[in-house]
């Protein structure tokens, strides 16, 4: 079940679209977001996020620095100061 995922850096919108699962390096530990996650907000430590477009697919890994993640109504928004593919 896909949900909407947005990855935004100050310079541009890096990614926007439906994904299956995203693993985010939160300040207090990694967490994975799937469809229907409860509303949640967390700061992020510098690290890698893994984006799974479909269940069981190879994850797309991106390095991010400085920012925070917001899980809203069936959507995940990550604001990061730096994003490297």
């Amino acid at each position: 079940m896909p949900f909407n995922f947005e990855l935004v850096s100050p310079e541009r919108q890096v990614r926007s679209g439906p994904v299956h699962q995203v693993v985010v390096p939160g300040t207090e530990g990694d967490f994975a977001v799937l469809e229907g996650h409860a509303p949640f907000m967390s700061t992020i430590r510098d690290g890698e996020i893994a984006i799974y477009e479909t269940a069981g697919a190879e994850p797309l890994v991106m390095k991010i620095e400085g920012g925070f993640a917001e899980v809203g109504d069936n959507s995940l928004t990550i604001l990061a100061e730096k994003v490297e593919a």
């Binding site: 409860a38 949640f40 400085g66």
Partner: peptide, 29 residues
């Protein structure tokens, strides 16, 4: 709107403290 339901990690204050200086940079940028 969605008050109460949202969970914050580490805490609202910590997130805000983290965001405020960043916001200045964003506005400047």
């Amino acid at each position: 709107k969605a008050t109460g339901a949202i969970e914050y990690e580490p805490s609202e204050e910590a997130i805000l403290d983290d965001l405020l200086p960043r916001n200045v940079a964003v506005q400047l940028f």
